[in-house]
Design a protein around this nucleic acid. Structure first.
Length: 551
DNA sequence: AAGCCCCAG
DNA sequence: CATTCTGGGGCTT
């Protein structure tokens, strides 16, 4: 038996929410007449998903159009090649779920993991609260674990029901939920009762749930390549993976991966719910039958680029690199493979809003780089065959507007530009001399309702200013307004890392997006330090971080 | 940092 | 088997 099995801890409480046939639900909202007919969502030659009426005919994910039509001659089809509507609805769902926890991880467009530890603790503080569960329970409940996970999971089942109700009431979408002490089990158990239902699993039934998958390729995290590798040493079933000597797995995978895989087979998953933020890349791709002419390539790229620029504009950030993806078809081997090339782009093309973005001259400039990238992949002087073109923007800077307005604000309203005594900024600090001057322009009639003792401190004003920013409509703002979006990876995914040069107590008081901004700025300057050694200036220029460094 | 591969829905 | 249209992450160079 895997030694980790006896050490598995159940202190976490995780909900997995999965929207029912998501694309199909969005299409019904766009066209309610679809509600009572079997229909599928089509991309090129493929039915990528279908409603439940169609599934009764045997329609399955990624079925060929011709096969689907044979099974269900009356199948109605809607085109789903443009993901915009699905994507925007998806982010609305994530935004709703973020009301329950700051730790929400997106998976694809239709799934979210939520770590509800804090909410569960809150609910358990209330002694009048009668603990019970709602929804389906997977497995037996005769020998439940006594570590305390039972009540947490039951409470989480109530939270999951609230979440699903909210998603239905606010957005009209039905969903399923799985509740467990780790992500793996939450995800698997979620699919045990569908659609529009939820299921909780207690740790004592973890093995039963894993065995119900039958084969290793059904374990989330084990894909085609891994299961093929496992097959070479005759591992097919869950039990095979449980019982194989770890030394055998080490012949195929490094020891960390080997351990990870075997743990999965026991339903053990230590991975944390990662806070999802703004996407790290924004891309579009279009597959096609065959392209063999450079002119055609340029036309396709133009169309893709124009669509992509609209998405990037809506995102609000400034992209730094662009990547071209080409799928080459080899007529001899009858196989295709993807090749990519990327290059930096001139940020000036994006700095002055929509006009600059859609300016045809700028589009042309980007197109020239793209065709340059294309010729790196394809010898255009020789015959070539392309079956897919893709574009994506990959690295981003926040738009400078935010930082500039903050810096301006600070310079205007603070006598000193750098904050030397950080504690004085804390609104909980009651020492009288710490109060900052309060310009009358920031007095508001609604003051009394804001905070118990709304002290006019610099930090309060700083936060207020940000709230004002949040309220305003601006073309550079995200379409997904409420989302807590971060574009950085952090050492600790519960809290945002505090740059060592900044006082942590102040850092924690700052709004999340400012924390992100400070951290990413610190990382940039740190990288410069690495590159240039001691001669580099610590923090240079008129940066946000500069206002918060301890002196 | 660039490009490939693997994972997911 | 992959097929669509994405997006994240890890490995190698």
């Amino acid at each position: 038996m895997n030694p980790d099995y006896y050490k598995d801890e159940h202190y976490r409480t995780i909900i997995h929410v999965d929207l029912d046939c998501f694309y199909a639900q969005v299409e019904v909202m766009k066209n309610p007449e679809l509600k009572n007919v079997p229909f599928g969502v089509q991309q090129k030659n493929i039915v990528v998903t279908s409603n439940y009426l169609a599934r009764e005919f045997g329609i399955r994910k990624c079925m060929l159009l011709s096969d689907a039509k044979q099974m269900c001659p009356n199948l109605v089809l809607v085109n789903g090649e443009d993901l915009n509507d699905y994507r925007s609805m998806s982010y609305k769902v994530t935004s709703l779920l973020q009301k329950y926890s700051n730790s929400v991880e997106r998976l694809g467009l239709d799934e979210n993991f939520i770590d509800v530890a804090n909410l569960v603790d809150e609910k358990l503080q209330d002694n009048t609260f009668q603990v019970h569960s709602v929804g389906n329970i997977f497995g037996n409940i005769e020998t439940l674990c006594q570590c305390g996970c039972e009540v947490r999971l039951k409470v989480a089942s109530l939270i999951a029901e609230e979440m699903r109700k909210l998603i239905y009431e606010e957005l009209g979408l039905t969903s399923c939920a799985g509740i467990a002490h780790n992500k793996l089990l939450a995800k698997i158990v979620c699919s045990k009762h569908k659609p529009n239902q939820q299921t909780v699993i207690f740790p004592n039934s973890a093995l039963e749930l894993m065995l119900s998958l039958n084969s290793v390729e059904n374990i989330p995290g084990i894909g085609k390549a891994t299961s093929e590798a496992l097959r070479t040493i005759n591992i097919r079933t869950i039990q095979d993976l449980q019982n194989i000597a770890i030394s055998e797995l080490n012949k195929l995978f490094d020891s960390e991966k080997a351990k990870f895989l075997q743990n999965l087979s026991y339903g053990i998953d230590k991975s944390l719910v990662k806070r999802s933020g703004k996407p790290l890349s924004i891309g579009l791709e279009d597959s096609c039958k065959l392209i063999s002419a450079e002119k055609e390539v340029k036309e396709k790229l133009t169309e893709l680029l124009k669509r992509l620029l609209i998405l990037v504009e809506a995102d609000g950030r400034i992209p730094k690199t662009i990547k071209l993806t080409v799928r080459k078809f080899d007529k001899l081997t009858k196989t295709s493979r993807r090749e990519t090339r990327q290059s930096n782009i001139n940020p000036h093309l994006f700095t002055s809003g929509k006009v600059a973005l859609m300016n045809s001259g700028n589009v042309d400039k980007i197109l020239i780089t793209l065709m340059g990238l294309f010729r790196k992949i394809v010898q255009v002087r020789r015959p070539f065959h392309i079956t897919l073109l893709g574009l994506s923007f990959n690295k981003f800077n926040e738009r400078p507007d935010i930082r500039r307005s903050l810096a301006l604000f600070l310079r205007k309203d603070l006598e000193v530009q750098s904050i030397t005594s950080i504690e004085n900024l804390n609104s909980n600090d009651s020492s009288p001399e710490s109060a900052a001057p309060s310009p009358s322009s920031y007095r508001e009639s609604s003051d009394q309702e804001c905070e118990p003792t709304p002290k006019r401190t610099k930090l309060n004003m700083f936060k207020r200013n940000l709230m004002e920013y949040d309220k305003c409509e601006s073309p550079c703002k995200l379409r997904v307004q409420d989302l807590q979006l971060n574009s950085e990876k952090h050492d600790n995914n519960q809290n945002i890392s505090c740059p060592p040069s900044v006082d942590e107590s102040v850092f924690k008081e700052l709004p999340l997006d400012v924390q992100h901004e400070l951290w990413s700025e610190y990382k940039r300057t740190r990288n410069e330090l690495v590159n240039f050694g001691n001669r580099a200036k610590r923090v240079k220029g008129n940066t946000l971080l500069n206002y918060f460094v301890k002196k």
